[in-house]
Design a protein around this nucleic acid. Sequence first.
DNA 1: GATGAATGAGATTTCATTCAT
DNA 2: TATGAATGAAATCTCATTCAT
Lengths: 210, 210, 210, 210
Amino acid sequence: MTENDPVPNSKQTTENTAAPGRRRELLATAAEVFAAHGYNATTVRRIADEAGLLAGSLYYHFDSKESMLDEILSTFLDELWAGYDTVLASGLGPRETLEALVTESFREIDRHRPAVAIYQKESRHLAARPRFAYLADSQRRFEKAWLGTLQRGVAERVFRADLDTRLTYRFVRDTVWVAASWYRPGGAHTPEEIARQYLSMVLDGIAVRD
Amino acid sequence: MTENDPVPNSKQTTENTAAPGRRRELLATAAEVFAAHGYNATTVRRIADEAGLLAGSLYYHFDSKESMLDEILSTFLDELWAGYDTVLASGLGPRETLEALVTESFREIDRHRPAVAIYQKESRHLAARPRFAYLADSQRRFEKAWLGTLQRGVAERVFRADLDTRLTYRFVRDTVWVAASWYRPGGAHTPEEIARQYLSMVLDGIAVRD
Amino acid sequence: MTENDPVPNSKQTTENTAAPGRRRELLATAAEVFAAHGYNATTVRRIADEAGLLAGSLYYHFDSKESMLDEILSTFLDELWAGYDTVLASGLGPRETLEALVTESFREIDRHRPAVAIYQKESRHLAARPRFAYLADSQRRFEKAWLGTLQRGVAERVFRADLDTRLTYRFVRDTVWVAASWYRPGGAHTPEEIARQYLSMVLDGIAVRD
Amino acid sequence: MTENDPVPNSKQTTENTAAPGRRRELLATAAEVFAAHGYNATTVRRIADEAGLLAGSLYYHFDSKESMLDEILSTFLDELWAGYDTVLASGLGPRETLEALVTESFREIDRHRPAVAIYQKESRHLAARPRFAYLADSQRRFEKAWLGTLQRGVAERVFRADLDTRLTYRFVRDTVWVAASWYRPGGAHTPEEIARQYLSMVLDGIAVRD
DNA sequence: GATGAATGAGATTTCATTCAT
DNA sequence: TATGAATGAAATCTCATTCAT
């Protein structure tokens, strides 16, 4: 769980790595539009309009609409795993690991909201395509990290013994990521505040204790 | 909250001359395909293939691809609200209401999995179109029911006083519905079992109590 | 050399075999245009114009422009090899085999002029693509048939001993097929007449004998 | 037939300020790519890649893709006609003229293989455009030279009386030029050797004489 | 009820070409 | 001389929809 980024992805396509200025701008625009309207429903022309050039001109920078999506998702996942790996490598107990993962996740949502929203909506069917195989890989690592933490918590009697860890994993995973669909950076809550509230609910429950 | 189906929708379009059996079959097929691949990515031809007829022939049964979607979603919402309204009309306390709503929700997922999955993925951007205004209406009623229950619970000291109810509402709402994306009817868990586990987590937390 | 059509080709794509009427017409039109202007330079719209429908409508009948080309070429090659195999299986001597192959070739040009012209112009670079691998296969069988006949002729002292058979094969092969670029069915010469003239030149030379 | 280059062509376009070395290199590269993939299928970017610069940079050297093609073909034809005119002006008999023309042709293929291959594939449809009218002119002169030689040969009883000279002209013309598609300079045969073999076939036939 | 054929609008992509630097 | 970025026209292809049979 602490190995160095074993998730292979295809981030770098034909185009050069060196001149990231324009490229990054265009990707940010594309991500915003994909997130707002869905990948399929987004036309290349729409992205181009938003970025202030003609549709065909995007093809100077990117091979295809799909390769934009690819680069958006893989860049996000690379950063996500950098954060996760730091957490997982730091030798925390299960509860602290869970807290750190949740907090890190909300921070990623804060930084990569469009990418997370796209990931949330599209990853399931994308993962089937060879080009996006890294999504399935990431999914697997993800499960290992979260489910492992829950199971360790149960084993160490930090989490309740009667927990269906698989089910709990799904609940937790989904709630965290779906947040990207309503979260607005710069809104009422900081990522850390949201994480705190969420952890409070999941760890201690919302019911008043007798 | 107990009024009779105030959500207007357009379920019945022009044609319902023929045996409603075929119609229902075709909608079930369409829902399955929409859920699996997304509404936009689903071609009319794909639905027709799956149903064993030619694309053009679907237009004998339905006005348009959109009207299939409309009918799938509105049928689902009608049933959902029938269930919810029964719960909300039965005078339960906040905790029991929450339990009943969650249980009812997982039952709906069990019965209408494809519709719920479509709803989950598409409702946000559909709600903007006039034809699907009922989605926004439903969303509002939904918020009133759930958020109201949480707030009532805090007021009656059944739920913790320090709860950010709005945030909690979002967490709960999302987790429940996203379940449609992994739930498989006839799988390891009954809807009631899933509801029980989920409620246990949300109400009492996963941490071991001192 | 007498086995039953061992050249695999992909003639039948998705579309049905049963209703060949419209399909065949459209292919004939496409072949004519491909032959006249080259495959790359031919637009789908041009074919559609010539056939009297809209460009998009062609896609009801064919998967792609490429699949039209594929079907044109593979249909032609199937017929060609049916004819060649009959000749090769009939136990003729080298000279008679050569005469029969040449005659058969000019007959095929008469029947499939556009296909032959396309084959002549495009086969070299198409053969590299997996989809058109059967072109390379055919090319190999072709060489075996013609070169083999020439070599047999030399061995049996029917053809001159000092013949560079490989070079002669190339000359003969090319001359025969390039004829498709100037031949007009219904013109001054029948295929058999052309074959006779050509064979006279190749077998006996154009110089007056001393 | 001995006039000095009456074929007008447009070889020199606007720019020839710079070192003609680079220009020639670029044209050689372009010719190679045109010959390998066809003029239409060749992108300016491909030529630029092969030459080690960017697509836009080619426009410093040439007006357009078409002007590269123009210069390649007209340069070739100028040299070809220099050779042919020498032969035609030297007062040889029909048989010797034919031998000299064939030999000269294979020498041109050796020197200008890519240009000949392009000429072979593209000249028919290019000749229609005004800019490439010189291709049609050349074609006419070509026919006059070859057909005239054959007719003279028949008249002088050097070639067989029963020859269909028009048909023979086509056969001979095609075979010679198609050779560009398989000939590789520096391969097994010198141009002169190929010419000898070819002339042997055409003049004396491949059949053993009784 | 269903088919086969077509429409037409719009999508992605390609590519020769331009031009400021 | 060359680059990097963009243009704009056109190409292939997709797909919801229509309609005569």
